[in-house]
């Protein structure tokens, strides 16, 4: 086979491979959605995180604004410390409310942020004060049964 034809084919092959890698990272993966190079870290204490996992999205109004980077158990307060990496394009007031929510019936859990009205914004290393734990099904049923029993007594 001619040398130039071979070079052409090999060139085409390499270009195809590189294009495939680019499609994988841009179209299949989420490289373009979230760029962690411009980010700030905040944390929050939750009484119960339910099934929240590292890498879970942090959403506000349904838009991904950050990701959970670390979940630790604190022996001082006996609750979970969740560290979040936030996109620095999105600034939130200091009294922002963070709650652990579930997307869909069986979906993954994420942290939902509801902005407050404070003038001061959250900065790198700040702590979210107002948090709401995840719904745990057993507790929910337990509370329901308890209320039911209390209602029955009043009759």
């Amino acid at each position: 086979m001619q040398r130039t034809t071979m070079d052409l084919w090999v060139g085409l092959f390499v270009v195809m491979g590189v294009v495939a890698l680019m499609i994988l990272s841009l179209k299949v993966g989420n490289l373009n959605v979230y760029n962690p190079s411009h980010s700030y870290t905040i944390s929050g204490n939750f009484e119960n995180i339910g099934g929240l996992k590292v890498r879970a999205p942090v959403k506000s109004a349904g838009v991904v604004v950050g990701r959970v980077t670390d979940i630790q158990f604190s022996t001082q307060t006996y609750d979970a410390v969740v560290t979040m990496d936030m996109d620095s394009r999105f600034q939130f007031p200091k009294d922002t409310f963070a709650s652990i929510l579930t997307s869909g019936l069986l979906g993954e859990q994420y942290i939902g942020l509801a902005a407050g009205g404070d003038e001061v914004m959250l900065k790198e290393g700040d702590k979210i004060m107002k948090t709401n734990s995840a719904m745990v099904l057993e507790e929910l049923i337990g509370r329901f049964l308890f209320n039911k029993a209390a209602d029955d007594d009043s009759f």
Binding site: L21, V28, G29, N30, L31, V33, R55, P57, V64
Partner: peptide, 19 residues
């Protein structure tokens, strides 16, 4: 099809490790 795929596939953990 595309959006659920993009939210689940992570560049570093999935694509780079596969590579």
């Amino acid at each position: 099809y595309w959006s659920q795929m993009q939210s689940a596939v992570d560049f570093r953990i999935d694509i780079l490790n596969g590579f």
